[in-house]
Nucleic acid binder design. Structure first.
Lengths: 216, 216
DNA sequence: CAAGTAGCATACGCCGCGTATGTGAAAGGA
DNA sequence: TCCTTTCACATACGCGGCGTATGCTACTTG
């Protein structure tokens, strides 16, 4: 086989471990995932794991960091393609809900992550998404599009609202209906942020579809 | 010592186990809490635990049910003493934040609970708080105080917003300032729900204090 | 080419959970 | 009162998973 430098083997090993762990954590959960099992599935042993990540928690951190960076990329892509800042912000919120509907994100990032690693606000990674939303809000405030609330506090509130709602939607007996209701209610709440001048105008002009995201 | 009937001993044993587990879960967390340790702290052994609760998860369920019922009581007390339905609803939301600031609730109910037991919306207990807020919203809609959004979806959103924000506040470098900002932002969001006629009027008449809860 | 180092595997011990089994005391009937 | 049954709880055992200490091999560096 091709003689490859050590550095490449290392990143490949790390990637294989993270991938295997990610699969295991997503399917059976962090607690039930046996390190012997999923390292073997990656063609390695626990020795490699402890060498690279210190312990099981360290590996979970790496997995979450990976997922979180993917989320950040997706979020910025969504807000970038929006027509107005406000619409971009709303789209970002709905995109958040959509992502939180994915079982992998729910299980690893939203449930096991906080339980094992402590509050997510501590880990620097999660703050990427928060920072993105905070930046959007700051921009909107500067534009005078919304009332002058604290951007970070608002971002946290909206974040929590979307994440929790997503978990409800995912387990609802009628997920499609639940998501529609949620997006409607979310729009109503977000309208509270809009500057008084625009209060009578809803997120989208009347007649248009309320929100295209969360396709049934 | 007094000869007491068996049934009394049983409920006392259960109560001792729940109390000991609650203490252990709150301090070191569910995963790190050794059953041998905290049953011994209660003057019992794991035998009693398995007899009454089946397994460790069963005991966690019992602990959460206990905490949750306490939360329900506190919430309904708050909303009951409010002057108007709307104010009662807002107070309920802020009370939610206050409770979510307590380390015990954060750790057991908000972090370990979902990770071990699955999404909280599944367990019947948590729904008590949700149901309370849903009922408040339904009443407000019937009164025409707020726009006709779906009550349950809205309750979930607000619930998630307050819970997440509380976790942020708890770990913020300036918890007092963070809580003030959060309550302001929450009020702005909630204003989005108010019927158009009242849109110009904020949660409290201008001149009054914005929100008395979350005392600094 | 030799020495050092780092990536990873192997081996061992400990702890914690779950289950199977045992025991003593309360409940119930004659 | 005495015997029997039941049940609350303790004890004993085995298994699996984590963490660490140690060893081996191969790449790097002078």
């Amino acid at each position: 086989m091709a003689r490859r430098p050590r550095s490449e083997m290392i990143v490949e090993t790390r990637a294989k471990l993270v991938a295997a762990a990610r699969r295991a954590f997503a399917t059976v959960g962090y607690a039930a995932a046996s390190m012997d099992d999923f390292t073997a599935a990656a063609g390695l042993t626990r020795g490699a794991l402890y060498h690279h990540f210190g312990d099981k928690k360290g590996l979970l951190e790496a997995v979450i960091a990976q997922i979180d960076s993917e989320m950040s990329v997706r979020l910025s892509a969504v807000s970038a393609k929006a027509a107005t800042s406000w619409q971009g912000f709303v789209d970002e919120c709905t995109a958040y809900i959509e992502m939180a509907l994915e079982p992998e994100i729910q299980r690893i990032v939203l449930r096991d992550g906080p339980a094992v690693l402590g509050d997510p606000w501590q880990w620097p990674t999660q703050s990427a998404c928060i920072r993105s939303m905070t930046a959007s809000l700051e921009q909107l405030i500067a534009q005078g599009a919304i009332t002058a609330v604290d951007p970070e506090a608002t971002a946290r509130l909206i974040n929590g609202a979307t994440l929790h709602a997503a978990q409800w939607i995912a387990h609802a007996e009628d997920p499609i209906g639940a998501s529609k209701k949620t997006v409607q209610a979310l729009n109503a709440l977000l309208d509270g942020l809009r500057a008084q001048a625009g209060k009578s105008m809803r997120t989208k002009p009347p007649g248009g579809r309320r929100n295209p995201a969360i396709k049934g």
